[in-house]
Write a protein that binds this DNA or RNA. Sequence first.
DNA 1: CTTGCCTATGCAACCAGTTGCATAGAACCA
DNA 2: TGGTTCTATGCAACTGGTTGCATAGGCAAG
Lengths: 188, 188
Amino acid sequence: MALEHAILVSLLEQPGSGYELARRFERSIGYFWTATHQQIYRVLKRMESDGLLDVREVPQERRPDKKEYSVAPPGRDALSRWLHEPIEPESIRHDLAVKIRGAAFDDPAALVREVERHHRVHSDRLAHYLAGEFRDFTGPDAPVSPDAGQELQHVVLRGGIAYERMTIAWLDDVLATLRRIAGNHPRT
Amino acid sequence: MALEHAILVSLLEQPGSGYELARRFERSIGYFWTATHQQIYRVLKRMESDGLLDVREVPQERRPDKKEYSVAPPGRDALSRWLHEPIEPESIRHDLAVKIRGAAFDDPAALVREVERHHRVHSDRLAHYLAGEFRDFTGPDAPVSPDAGQELQHVVLRGGIAYERMTIAWLDDVLATLRRIAGNHPRT
DNA sequence: CTTGCCTATGCAACCAGTTGCATAGAACCA
DNA sequence: TGGTTCTATGCAACTGGTTGCATAGGCAAG
């Protein structure tokens, strides 16, 4: 149940509302964890009633009031405990790979467009990550001597960049393979 | 719901029982999709009652009888339909990355062992994939002119290999970063 | 002045996946 | 004889996550 812990980390980096968290999960946190706003609101509520978080009603002008959450001492403890527990190394669930193997029983050429679409999405993500890296870590506005938190954020971002580069290279390989097969076994 | 489709692909490649499928999901299919036997049995039952699969009771000697499943024509159609639908590009959920960012609020040095453990697991997986690739695709027993199905299996396996290599390189980066931080901010 | 988007929160129903447990015959080892 | 492992299947309860829908004020564009 790492969503809880991802929320703790995010709120320690910067307190905020459910809505703000949802947007962070579309950005920096989203590099390695995704969540919808419904999921976030539900978990926030549970965490607050468990005493892991504090809430503060913040009236705002020109927009609805928000509830700003921050990490309470028991939340810090819970995170610390989790950090010292071993976790299972990830196992992947890659729908596209299922499709690729399935293409053997259908028309491999029909998959080319789909793979190209994924290629575009991953290229966009890579560009987005690289822009973020330049803005926060490698460009002229980057901190001269980053602290531990910034170093760790950067190494996680480098992981996202490496993942996208690897995926793009693999999708090139997939496309070449699909085209070779379609060439050898043309369908009219 | 790609488990259903992963099962269809696997049964098209080779009919088998729930137990056999579970073992395939620990091996080749497991490169890109995981599932427990409970999950598999439940889905098989549903797919059979939906008419996607045929069952055949196979009495065996020296071991319990098994139910051998194979893909029925409606199952083939369902797979084909899914192959022509676009799917969402994956988004990752990487617990370890949450931990790494969380380490900024705890002791970064304490994470070194955990990361080393993951490093070992991924190195083992890589070795396992490479052995499989040598056995089935690049070694002396490999098919001289592979058919489309074998080409596609190979490109998926290459994806698994690329993923593990990328992950191992990133974990090296993470370890170097953690050690640098621990050196700058030692705890006694 | 209406349509659509942005901020902000939430419920209800559903689906997918995990965990724990149970059964049962045969093989193998000490 | 008793413990463990392997084949083989399954139920029940739970947790995590998705989808669809609802509300509600303010803002900007056409």
